[in-house]
Nucleic acid binder design. Structure first.
Lengths: 297, 297
DNA sequence: ACTGAAGGTTCAACTATACTGAAGCACAAT
DNA sequence: ATTGTGCTTCAGTATAGTTGAACCTTCAGT
């Protein structure tokens, strides 16, 4: 690769303006510099770009090279533009990881916002469960939406912002045996508990103990499956209230009589402490908090 | 555009090899040169490409820039390859103009030859009629296939190669009135003569006189139309024998009894004198002459 | 045919830029 | 601790691009 973008730019300027002299003015150089640039390029490519019989005129090969040069310059200018955007503080990509137990509506608002062409940052969202969330955050995500239930507090280096509190409910189908009377530890042990599997890869083998031990445990991959399984009467289990509000209202599912049967938790928006937020991250945080506080928006 | 292909190449080498040092060896430079190149590029783009907290590691923005850089380099390498081809004597494009009265089979052989991916030159063929052929040749075609009928000889600067001779025949449909007896000047004038229109743009108005004057003249745009018109009995006219060999054999068309009613002409392959042929032109000439001499090939 | 203006080239001197090599620092592995 | 690898800094050097003046050619106008 013994030619430069500068040479290609000069060639393109000559081809466009139609003369060495005009190209020179445009590039704020002296004509002889253009001559030199062109001869150097011709030597580098081994191609006679200009016919110098009289006034220099592009040869057919020259035209061909100009076409290719335009392709190179186009890509180079695209890079330049992208770099310009990056240098103004927009990240090329913003990686967000969200706990699957949280409401997705505010996130959808963010996705819409980032789909706007005026937002140059590309948004990447990963839905994880339990430890999988922090694992992915540690492996490079910029923002994490944590459910905040089993949040140890020993995780330092995090800057947290509270999201509206949510409720976990102990639920079963209305015609499930456990729904007929107050739940005891013994009655509970007779039935299958539905649990959403931890999506962490590190703790593949370590099965997280349920809130209250149960003989039979069914692991599910996400809360949507869990909701379906609960509706099908396959077992009982904890599930975020916002996911079952409709079927609770309709009476298909019921909150079990147990203590506790409700558990309020405090979701958190986490970013890395210390390093300031880029413009993309800031926009995401602002948009998400606004959407979470005013779910109707 | 204040960065160079060289800088992008260095960045790509670092990204690919995973270290400044390996990139330096690959580029046959000293490590400090790589450092310098990278810092210069970062300054030019205004983007922190590497995280220098510890061992330099590409930032996410850096990865993004690398992606774009690969795009630029890919195009640049394509240009380099194309230039390499051009510098070995292959033209980027070979323009051939052919008189529409000539047999097209040898030309088709050439087209097949140039369709081979190992032939980098792009073949462009224009079919013209009469003066249109030379006009296009003058306006830039590299090779002309002339019918040689009205070749003035005053056209200098041409290098000619003879093609197999052909015959013009004075033809009409078998049931045309002129086919019934020997043709006289008077009987000829009573019937329409079919003529292929000159495709030259310069002589739009100048209608070329027919071989023998006729009262009614029908101008057609090509010999295929002329053949159809002859078959339809729309008139009489001169047409190359090879275009009507089949219908003469079947008896649908006949050669008129006139003198002359046959005219042997000597097609020529013309190139510009003085400047040697490029590899594409040479290949074309060789292929065409071979195909013309051995039409079965 | 002459003339002047504009475009292009050549050349030597200059300037800016990239490269080298030595020295030094940071980190990782032993 | 110690060694080795990888990166950076810096000063000197080499390379490559830029300038400006002189010259040549072409083209348009007289």
């Amino acid at each position: 690769m013994d030619f430069t973008l500068d040479q290609l730019g000069a060639l393109e300027a000559i081809a466009r303006t139609g003369s060495f002299a005009r190209a020179a003015t445009e590039l704020r150089r002296v004509p002889s510099a253009i001559t030199h640039t062109v001869t150097t390029l011709e030597a580098a490519l081994g191609v006679a770009l200009f016919d110098r019989e009289k006034r220099p005129r592009l040869t057919r090969d020259g035209e061909h090279v100009v076409e290719l040069a335009r392709g190179v310059l186009e890509r180079a200018r695209a890079l330049e533009r992208a770099a310009g955007v990056l240098s103004t503080g927009w990240e090329s990509e913003l990686r967000v990881v969200v706990d699957g137990s949280l409401p997705m509506d505010p996130l959808m608002t963010c996705l819409r916002r980032f789909a706007d062409p005026s937002v140059p940052t590309v948004l990447r969202v990963d839905v994880e469960y339990q430890d999988g969330v922090m694992e992915r955050f540690r492996s490079g995500a910029d923002v994490a939406l944590l459910h905040g239930l089993d949040f140890d507090g020993d995780e330092r280096g995090l800057q947290l912002r509270a999201l509206p509190p949510l409720e976990m409910l102990l639920i079963a189908s209305a015609d499930h045996p456990l729904a007929r009377a107050a739940v005891t530890e013994a009655s509970r042990a007779e039935h299958a508990e539905l649990i959403v599997r931890d999506s962490s890869t590190r703790f593949e083998s370590r099965s997280r103990p349920s809130f209250i031990g149960s003989r039979n445990v069914v692991y599910l991959s996400d809360f949507h499956s869990k909701r379906l399984a609960l509706l099908a009467g396959a077992g009982y289990g904890w599930i975020p209230g916002h996911l079952v509000a409709d079927v609770l209202a309709s009476g298909a599912l019921v909150v079990l009589e147990a203590s506790p049967s409700r558990w309020t938790y405090q979701p958190q928006l986490a970013t890395r402490e210390g390093q300031g937020l880029g413009r993309g991250a800031q926009l995401f945080v602002d948009t998400l908090l606004a959407a979470a506080d005013a779910p109707e928006g």
